[in-house]
Design a protein around this nucleic acid. Structure first.
Lengths: 133, 133
DNA sequence: CATATTGTGTAATAACATTACATCTGGCAG
DNA sequence: CTGCCAGATGTAATGTTATTACACAATATG
């Protein structure tokens, strides 16, 4: 079992609700977007969202896009190896596509090595224009 | 002349002050860190900092670290080609080292191509532990 | 000189995230 | 069964980061 074995994760009601909102959205959702969509389900404070997100992030079910301060559902089964995750963010329509790439993670490690730096985690966010625009 | 020809940029007083703070700091500085350090020079509002940063960012003299919401001075002469910039952030001491790499930018473009995505800009932030720790 | 562009000062507000503290729930050791 | 404990929850308050709005000043350019 890897650190990202989704099948064995038990989610609470709040965690499921948050995951559903993020999964169902076409665009990245901010914590406050999520909060607003869950008011009908009894959510009243941002912390309820952030706590659920913490767990979803820890298990790789959701990713945080740093440059947007927003969250998307994971589009890939992770835990399959040493692949880097790359997010391609379209500046026209805001959609985000998640890709994985082993070359990049290799290059990154090689680059880090020359510096004596030990890589734990990488966040790669690419801005540009998607196929449709 | 490239988009990042630093030598030809004329900075105003506020912009120089902000650049000096960022350049002089060992660690990434938040906008409010900078504001506090410039109160003695007459800075009173965050916007004064953000406006100066806007220009410094536009000219590549300063970089924003998305995962830290903080800013560092550029450590490389950019505009030298199609190299990707990689920030290595030490989780132990908070220091950031800026590297450039042409392999990664190539991989990134190749990866994007399979998606029909046209890359304008890439932000790569790596977390880990630096040589000293 | 007239005008356009860029920069500035200040206040208010918006957007994103965390701390603190009390309570609840479910599993499990005794 | 019972008492305890870890994780989850509810709520309020606060902290941190960033922007909008508006009036005015400085500088460059025709």
């Amino acid at each position: 079992m890897t650190a990202h074995d989704h099948s064995s994760i038990v989610l609470t009601r709040n965690q499921k609700l948050v995951l559903d909102v993020v999964s169902g959205a076409k665009l990245p959702q901010s914590a406050y977007d999520i909060l607003d969509k869950l008011r009908g389900d009894g959510f009243k404070a941002p912390l309820q969202v952030y706590r659920a997100l913490d767990k979803l992030l820890a298990h790789g079910l959701v990713h945080r896009l740093e440059s947007l301060s927003a969250f998307i559902a994971c589009q890939h089964p992770h835990g399959e190896g040493r692949a880097a995750t790359v997010f391609m963010i379209c500046d026209e329509c805001g959609t985000v596509s998640e890709q994985t790439d082993t070359c990049i993670s290799g290059d990154l490690r090689k680059l880090a090595k020359t510096d004596g730096f030990s890589v734990k985690q990488a966040n790669i966010e690419v801005r540009g224009v998607c196929r449709k625009h």
